[in-house]
Nucleic acid binder design. Structure first.
Length: 490
RNA sequence: GGUCGGAUGGCCGAGUGGCUAGGCACGGGUCUGCAAAACCCUCUACAGCGGUUCGAAUCCGCUUCCGACCUCCA
């Protein structure tokens, strides 16, 4: 059995995963800023890292999985009044900022639940770790890598670069950044307070309109965007932990700055492996508010969006995401979603078929090698599309056993059931969304099937077809097989 | 402009220096009273132009096109 290989963004290569303190694994994932309902793009990270989480557990590691929620708004991009996203929303909706954060945190949790994402071991919030952030900032100042300016504190990128490689993670060269900074002519608040335009804020003094504020040694204000993740990952996972994950859009400046801050504070690299998932695109372009192509999760599940031909279930979305490797962009389209929907249904149906298969003495299936192949797929940097392809090969086999074309022994059948359950349900976290119905409904259906079969044997096809048609109309499908009639409820 | 990443069959999406991933759709068939489901068969692609090689979609170069990021924006 080979080891898990992870593509490490920092070193730009696949590296064999070796935890710092076997069998313990510490993972930190950058979660959302909760100032709006989650959209389709927000689903990818949780789904991808959930598979990582589950796969590591499958491999026997003891995982501490930390995913934060950013409930400190930071500054809005294009509003120069110095207001932050959450505060702005709070003003517009006439609510307390924490009400906004709570409301959208709940919305985010709803999505995670619908997608059957394992809960994080710890879900820290930025607002609950102001003290840790202040401590870290103090230490960075003490170590000479940050300076106070008019009540705000900035990280000294030039100083840091004299003996560290600022830009290695994101493949940037500081000289280019310096050259580019002026050209952009960005009109960000407080630029004149910085020694250098590349310096970034660790602490910002709050203007009078800024409602989210905390006391600090420097001013009443709020922490910079990057420091929360450094402080919280350090608190719960230590100075150096195993895996840090997030979206590719966070590569720069967020993660680059996290590395710099942690190095400046502790003298250590914060993470051993950096994992970045790619974006979900619509018509080849990233989902973005400015492009007006954002589809919220709620809209996705209800089908209420102009881009959607129909509603799609949570598991369809999850399966759609898993059919692409996490480092590539994934393009949204109705055709692709509908293909995933059908494929998923076939995959899950095979699981049900597996439960009723009868073994015999013939054996046409090498069960052990199947398990190895499935695991190998994920060992290669979580190649879920390969895993799914292999699972579909298995689906074919299961169906062939069911139709008597090939045989399986009782022993192998039991093993096969375990393998299927492990990979489909426990590792990919896919669940059957079909309503299997209560025992009474099942009983009623059995009676209907019996009556229909009686009609059929009397060649009263008019009646038997009416029964089938009426049931289909309410979402119950009858399937006449060699072993009798079965049904599925959708 | 800088940096990075892409361009694969009708659609989505893997992968590899030679052994035709997979899903969905399409077409044909088996089964069935008829359907559905299931099964079998069919559809053999890798942006363009050069080069390296016995052999390249896979390596190298150039071109075209697309995308992401570029300081507080998932």
């Amino acid at each position: 059995m080979t080891d898990l290989k992870i593509y490490d963004t920092y070193n730009r290569e696949n590296r064999v995963f070796k935890p710092l303190n076997h069998p313990f694994v510490g993972i930190y994932i950058c979660g959302p800023t909760v100032y709006g309902h989650p959209h389709l793009g927000h689903a990818r990270g949780p789904v991808v890292f959930d598979v990582l989480h589950r796969f590591l557990i499958y491999k026997g590691f003891k995982v501490r999985f930390v995913r934060n929620v950013t409930d400190v708004g930071h500054l809005v991009n294009d509003a120069d009044e110095g207001e932050d996203k959450i505060a702005k929303k709070a003003r517009v909706e006439q609510l307390e900022p924490m009400e906004i954060a709570q409301f959208y945190t709940d919305s985010y949790h709803k999505m995670l639940h619908a997608l059957n994402i394992r809960p994080a071991s710890i879900e820290p919030r930025a607002s609950g770790h102001i003290i840790e952030q202040i401590e870290m900032i103090s230490k960075i100042i003490e170590n000479g890598f940050a300076y106070e300016s008019n009540g705000s504190v900035y990280f000294d990128v030039i100083k840091y670069s004299s003996n560290h490689d600022y830009g290695k993670l994101s493949g940037r060269i500081l000289e280019d950044l310096i050259a580019g900074a002026g050209n952009e002519a960005r009109d960000l608040e407080g630029q004149d307070e910085k020694h250098n335009p590349n310096d970034f804020a660790l602490w910002k003094k709050a203007g009078p309109e800024h409602i989210m504020r905390w006391p600090s040694p420097w001013s009443e204000g709020f922490p910079g965007w990057h420091i929360e993740c450094s402080a919280m990952s350090r608190k719960y996972l230590g100075d150096t932990f195993d895996i840090h994950g997030g979206g590719m859009d966070l590569l720069f400046p967020h993660h680059e700055s996290e590395i710099a801050q942690s190095q400046a504070c502790t003298g250590h690299q914060p993470a051993n492996y950096w994992m970045h998932h790619n974006m979900i695109t619509v018509n080849g372009q990233k989902m973005a508010k400015s492009l007006n192509n954002g589809i919220s999760i709620e809209e996705f599940f209800s089908g209420k969006h102009p881009l959607l031909e129909k509603a799609y279930s949570p598991m369809t979305l999850k399966f759609f995401i898993l059919q692409a490797q996490y480092r590539g962009t994934l393009d949204f389209s109705n055709a692709a979603l509908q293909a995933s929907e059908k494929g998923l249904s076939r995959l899950l149906q095979a699981g049900e078929t597996l439960e009723k298969i009868k073994p015999n003495n013939q054996n046409d299936l090498e069960v052990t090698s199947i398990q190895i192949e499935l695991e190998e797929a994920l060992n290669e940097d979580l190649n879920t599309p390969i895993l799914i392809a292999k699972l579909f090969d298995l689906v074919t086999k299961i169906n062939q056993i069911d139709t008597g074309q090939i045989g399986i022994t009782l022993e192998n059948l039991e093993k096969l059931k375990v393998i299927y359950k492990t990979f489909v349900h426990e590792i990919l976290g896919l669940e059957n969304e079909k309503d299997s119905g209560s025992e009474k409904i099942k009983g009623v259906l059995e009676i209907l099937i019996e009556l229909r079969n009686e009609a059929k044997s009397n060649k009263n096809y008019e009646l038997s077809d009416v029964i089938r048609k009426k049931l289909t109309e309410i979402g119950i499908e009858l399937k006449d097989g060699k072993e009798g009639t079965s049904f599925s409820i959708s």
